[in-house]
Design a protein around this nucleic acid. Structure first.
Length: 562
RNA sequence: GUCCCAGUAGCUCAGCUGGAUAGAGCAACAGCCUUCUAAGCUGUGGGUCGGGAGUUCGAAUCUCUCCUGGGACGCCA
């Protein structure tokens, strides 16, 4: 069985008078260094009970211990009881497990086929897909895949920002300065220019903002010309976004944006009124939330609705259509308050499913220590960054592997891999200072490093004419042990990533495994020794499988050659 | 002003529910390709874990306080 439970059983034998199994289980830790063993039990807490020094307790425990086959050795060091796993047995068991389960290795069934909706990416129509939206897109995509790996049925929702006063402003700008031909040729960049120009002009002329609001009112009232322009901008934007999603390998089950909920908000307001939750305050309608939070604004003084109203309608709609057990919102850090309010309002409305809602926040993409601003045109376009990355990857390939087929495809995989990995490798709540240089780095702890390791493993399997077999795996290389430990840890890494909604757990995992493999590769000639070749290739194959699967969970492809 | 998040090596960051001499990568320097992909491997140097106090056998980790940076705080999304 599980190594840890086996160790608990051994300890329980001697310590049952003072500690129960679950307590023991929580006390066991992983030693800092591999040389100290595989599992450790600290004896410091027992010092008081036994009135002896931790060192002596460890020594006595060790002396009296009867080890099952799973363990090879036990040592008492500095007040710790350290056990060493039986390397050959564990190695063979782990490799065979990975080989037999293939890409299903590491699956953990937490979800039981329940539905999890994931609201992510959600760019604003008629604005460029900026670096800021990259974060939500790649984090959400990874979480969807991780959730599926954990047995959930993931529904990917792109909650497009396709409604609001901004469209009124854009229509004003277009009617004043727009050129149909230019917009058709290069929709996003032209629309951005118009948007920026509008804000510059509005600083001089306040009346422009009023005009914008008027046009938005027309849009809400169903004015034909306004709707025509709106749906044109929406279509063009969507096409641009699709290009980026294809490049990144991201897809959605629903692209209902905010506009979709226009006719679903009356019901929400009605429900709120029925439950007597709606209060008037400064001529606006709000829901008051106890605690210390400010009230949630539902309706403006002029009777129009807000972001929160639409999000309420969306949450209810999603529960009705998908019957989700969990629902994630992958939206920036700065909206924490909004989601706290939203969830509390839903709780007050009596929806039990509010417990499954979670705001998966992330830090901002900063430029010179500050937030990037679309209004001032200070944006970095994701498409440009991706294209830079792909070009750089291509240059590398031409230089390093000139005979490679399908250079363009591999360049795409490696370039986007670098950008995605750079975003996912650190904890999501950290802010990221935008740095093209960092993002396009292909050496060290990067996506291409992991991809390269995968390609190396694939290459060796090709060169060694690897055939799968059911023969016993027998690994005796000491250098292989850290690979085995990492392979063993894969399911736990997935669990950590899911539970913390934290893709960086997978990124870190995959880096550790790649490092361990490269170290092994540097010290052991895998194909030279006929006797060990098949076992070693089995090890290489397990690594290849797990790297491939780990990268896939992050939304990164793993080329077999690069 | 109130609330939230962060402060670890020159830079970017790990460090799980407190535990053994604080770890990586980048950058710097020194090595390793007639032999499995050098996008790799090996080695060297570099840290008062923002400051102070407390809890504890033990604190980068928990509590308090101060400093610094960022963010949010009703008619935007």
């Amino acid at each position: 069985m599980d190594n840890k439970t086996a160790f608990v059983d051994v300890l329980y034998d001697q310590l049952k008078d003072h500690l129960d199994k679950s307590k023991l289980n929580s006390m066991i830790e992983k030693p800092k260094k591999e040389s100290m063993g595989d599992l450790a039990f600290p004896c410091f807490e027992l010092a008081k009970v036994y009135r002896k020094s931790p060192q002596n307790i460890a020594l006595e425990l060790t002396k009296e211990m009867t080890l099952p086959n799973l363990f090879q050795n036990v040592e008492a060091v500095n007040g710790y009881v350290n056990v060493f796993l039986n390397k050959e047995e564990v190695s063979s068991y782990t490799i065979q497990k990975a080989l037999s389960k293939k890409e299903n290795y590491g699956n953990v069934n937490i979800g039981n086929k329940g539905v999890i909706t994931i609201d992510f990416s959600s760019p604003n129509i008629a604005k460029p897909f900026s670096m800021g939206h990259l974060r939500s897109t790649v984090i959400g995509n990874a979480l969807a895949r991780i959730s599926e790996k954990c047995g959930y049925n993931a529904i990917r929702i792109n909650h497009l920002g396709d409604w609001g006063t901004q469209f009124g402003k854009l229509i004003v700008a277009y009617t004043l300065w727009g050129d149909e031909q230019k917009v058709k040729e290069n929709p996003i960049k032209e629309l951005l220019k118009l948007y920026v120009r509008f804000h510059e002009a509005a600083e001089q002329d306040e009346k422009l903002n009023d005009k914008g609001r008027q046009w938005f009112k027309k849009l809400e009232d169903g004015d034909e010309r306004a709707l025509e322009l709106w749906s044109w901008f929406r279509e063009e934007s969507l096409q641009e976004f699709t290009k980026i999603y294809e490049l990144l390998g991201v897809n959605f089950d629903s692209t209902h944006g905010e506009a979709f909920y226009n006719d679903k908000m009356d019901r929400v307001i009605q429900l709120l009124e029925e439950k007597k939750l709606l209060k008037e305050s400064d001529q606006a309608k709000v829901v008051e939330i106890d605690d210390d939070l400010p009230p949630c604004l539902i309706k403006k003084r002029d009777g129009t609705t807000l972001y929160a109203t639409r999000d309420l309608a969306a949450a209810i709609y999603r529960q009705d259509t998908y019957k989700f057990v969990r629902s994630l919102y992958v939206v920036g850090n700065e909206q924490t308050l909004h989601f706290k309010q939203l969830f509390l309002v839903l709780e007050k409305m009596g929806y039990k499913w509010h417990k499954g809602l979670k705001h998966v926040a992330f830090g901002m993409m900063l430029k010179d220590g500050k937030k990037m601003s679309t209004r001032k045109g200070k944006v970095v376009l994701l498409e440009d960054v991706l294209n830079d990355a792909i070009t750089l990857a291509k240059n590398n390939i031409v230089e390093k592997n000139p005979t490679l087929d399908s250079k363009d495809n591999v360049a795409r995989q490696v370039g986007t891999g670098a950008v995605i990995f750079h975003d996912l490798k650190n904890y999501r709540l950290n802010d990221i200072e935008f740095s093209l240089e960092d993002m396009l780095r292909f050496e060290g702890e990067t996506g291409p490093y992991v991809q390269y390791t995968h390609a190396r493993a694939s290459s060796i399997l090709r060169k060694g004419d690897y055939q799968e077999s059911n023969d016993d795996v027998n690994i005796s290389d000491v250098e292989a042990w850290s690979i085995i430990i990492n392979l063993l840890d894969f399911p736990d890494a997935i669990k950590r990533a899911y539970e913390g909604s934290d893709p960086s757990q997978i990124a870190k995992y995959v880096l550790e495994l790649a490092k361990a493999f490269n170290k092994y590769y540097g010290s052991v000639r895998i194909l030279d020794d006929k006797e060990h070749k098949q076992s070693r290739l089995s090890l290489v194959h397990s690594v290849q499988i797990v790297l491939n699967e780990g990268l896939r969970l992050l939304g990164i492809e793993a080329p077999n050659e690069m």
